[in-house]
Design a protein around this nucleic acid. Structure first.
Length: 586
DNA sequence: GAGTTTGAAACT
DNA sequence: CAGTTTCAAACTC
């Protein structure tokens, strides 16, 4: 192969790519009118208009995360600004997973590809894969960008037609593809036929996603490599698949060893764990969303990367895996492992944000209080020193303080300190860690007129570390309290879940019953507690806690319970915690 | 980074 | 619809 690539004129337009201006309809027209979406029922519940547009391969209307959300970013390529005026579309369309999500999770072992940054539905930055097409002009489904309905953006492709300049050709290609397969631009991974995952998740029901509507046809990969679309999408092979020697089924030892065995420390696994935890704070971790792209994510996952969507991967527990021959032959192993925290429906991103705000506010308060205290101490010190020893250096008070601090030896001077602080320690580490969106707020607090809260400018160097230490202590204490509240929340939910399971322990709820548990070990800081497993019928898969998880492992990853505490009530519960309610006071 | 393998997409 | 070819990603070395 390889012949004929190069300049576009060398590529004779194939019969399905000949551009006929007269007959050509706009991409939107094409996509909105004649495409039938039998799979729509498997997608997230959106309006009919949204469903129609969800298949539109034009970036202007696909509303895939990378396109729709990246406009705030300084992306300079032409693909971001779409010349096509986007048709009116429901907001819900923005949440339609990107097409071909199974392609998106970045393999930890794959080559480092040039990537752009997209965002998942919740705004989490996520890598957008970029194609390397050479012969398809990015106008065939071979091209991931084209297949996902997006323009190529910063890709490494050659002779790319998948951009604004060649929009006409692109539209024609779209039409051609749609003629062949009206579902070509639909997500190939169907969620539960019973409804969208969103609605299910809102009621706390386990999100069962993932069924390749065409199925894979793998022969040699055992469906345990990313060649397999199912595997890549973190889903199990289904009865739709026509694969040979499939190992991507529940209970597969190969598959389990891949995820939980000797590879338990690899990046993919960590992505799984992280995705699970991400889910605990409200992210869907939909791998696909290139997402999930936790996507993907991550990349589920895992992302993604991202095999970053455990829930996604395990999504077939009660969906579509109808008792087909394939299912029957494979089932029998342990039930599916759903990495989903009890807190998944409790902790929402806004809660995290609120927590950050609270902590930042606490930091500010602490800084203020400490500053006042310090100034008072300094007054006393200076007075006493002047009385007792006027002949000695006028820095003695500072020296004493330095000695008390015990860690200021290498301070070179106020300027250095200030500059150092601006680079590294102008804010305490915990504050920095919390400052994601609160940076402005924090700066405002720090520089408030009466506030004397700005330690860098108002405190002598000698006490800075101690100052920060004290501030840190206050903040971390508050953070610990908040985490304890969250843990209590989860325990409450868990206990409700456990009790309710007894009620639900009927054959009709078998799928729920068999969900196993992932139990997080308590973390070293002693804050978290060992969470009892609600079910003993489950296989315990204990992800190895990593340093990356140090903070978040204070929450427990447990199976998704039945919807006992609804999201609303759970959130209310969370908001009742002193820590979060304190924000109002502040 | 180059070459190979793989399976989906495209084609016949 | 089945078989073959093309293609690009995944993977290996």
């Amino acid at each position: 192969m390889g012949e004929g690539e190069g300049e576009g004129d060398k590529l004779p337009p194939k019969k399905d790519e000949v551009i006929t201006q007269e007959s050509m309809k706009s991409a939107r027209q094409l996509d909105f009118t004649h495409v039938v979406h039998p799979l729509h029922s498997n997608q997230a519940p959106v309006t009919s208009a949204a469903s129609a547009s969800s298949s539109i391969p034009s970036p202007a209307v696909t509303a895939t995360p990378p396109i729709t959300t990246s406009q705030a970013r300084p992306v300079s390529t032409t693909t971001v600004a779409t010349p096509i005026p986007p048709p009116p579309q429901p907001q819900g369309l923005l949440h339609v997973p990107i097409r071909h999500p199974e392609r998106k999770p970045e393999s930890p072992k794959s080559k480092p590809r040039a990537v752009g940054v997209g965002e998942t539905r919740d705004g989490t930055p996520q890598k957008k894969k970029q194609c390397n097409c050479k012969h398809s002009r990015c106008l065939k489904l071979y091209c991931e960008c084209f297949a996902s309905g997006t323009y190529c953006d910063g890709c490494n492709c050659v002779n790319c037609f998948n951009n604004v300049e060649f929009d006409t050709a692109r539209r024609e290609a779209v039409q051609s593809v749609l003629d062949r397969n009206p579902n070509a631009f639909k997500p190939k991974i169907a969620s539960s036929p019973h409804g969208g995952r969103d609605s299910r998740e809102e009621v706390g029901e386990p999100v069962m996603l993932g069924k390749h509507y065409k199925g894979c046809h793998c022969k040699k990969s055992g469906c345990l490599k990313k060649y397999c679309e199912c595997f890549q999408a973190n889903i199990l092979c289904s009865e739709n698949c026509k694969c040979l020697d499939c190992k991507n089924f529940e209970g597969s030892e190969d598959r389990q060893s891949l995820f939980h065995g000797e590879h338990s420390h690899n990046v993919a696994y960590l992505q799984h764990v992280n995705a699970a935890i991400t889910g605990a704070i409200g992210s869907y971790g939909f791998a696909s969303a290139p997402g999930p792209k936790r996507k993907k994510g991550q990349e589920f996952f895992l992302n993604q990367g991202t095999k970053d969507s455990p829930t996604h991967r395990l999504g077939q527990a009660n969906t579509g895996r109808t008792p087909s021959s394939k299912t029957d032959s494979r089932a029998g192993g342990p039930s599916k492992v759903v990495y989903r925290s009890l807190l998944a429906d409790i902790i929402q991103p806004k809660n995290v944000k609120a927590l950050c705000s609270v902590l930042v506010a606490v930091a500010g308060e602490a800084a203020k209080a400490l500053t006042e205290k310090r100034l008072a101490d300094q007054k006393e010190t200076s007075v006493s020193s002047s009385v007792q020893d006027q002949g000695q250096g006028n820095n003695k008070g500072d020296e004493v303080e330095k000695a008390a601090s015990g860690n200021q030896a290498e301070k070179s001077g106020p300027e250095d300190s200030s500059s150092d602080g601006s680079k590294g320690r102008s804010l305490s580490p915990d504050t920095l860690a919390l400052m994601c969106d609160e940076r402005d707020t924090m700066l405002m607090v720090a520089t408030s007129p009466n506030g004397s809260v700005e330690p860098t400018s108002q405190l002598p160097n000698g006490g800075q570390d101690q100052f920060y230490a004290e501030q840190e202590k206050v903040v971390l204490t508050k953070f610990r309290d908040c985490l304890n509240q969250i843990i209590s929340c989860g325990e409450l939910k868990e206990s409700n879940f456990s009790s309710s399971r007894m009620d639900l322990d009927t054959p009709a709820h078998t799928a729920v019953k068999i969900q196993p548990v992932v139990q997080q070990r308590p973390v070293a800081n002693g804050v978290s507690q060992t969470i009892k497993q609600p079910s003993q019928r489950t296989t315990t898969t204990t992800p190895t806690p990593t340093t990356r998880l140090t903070t978040t492992t204070t929450t427990t990853t447990t199976p998704t319970p039945t919807p006992i505490p609804t999201t609303t009530s759970a959130q209310t519960q969370l908001h009742k915690t002193p820590a979060l309610s304190e924000k109002k006071d502040l």
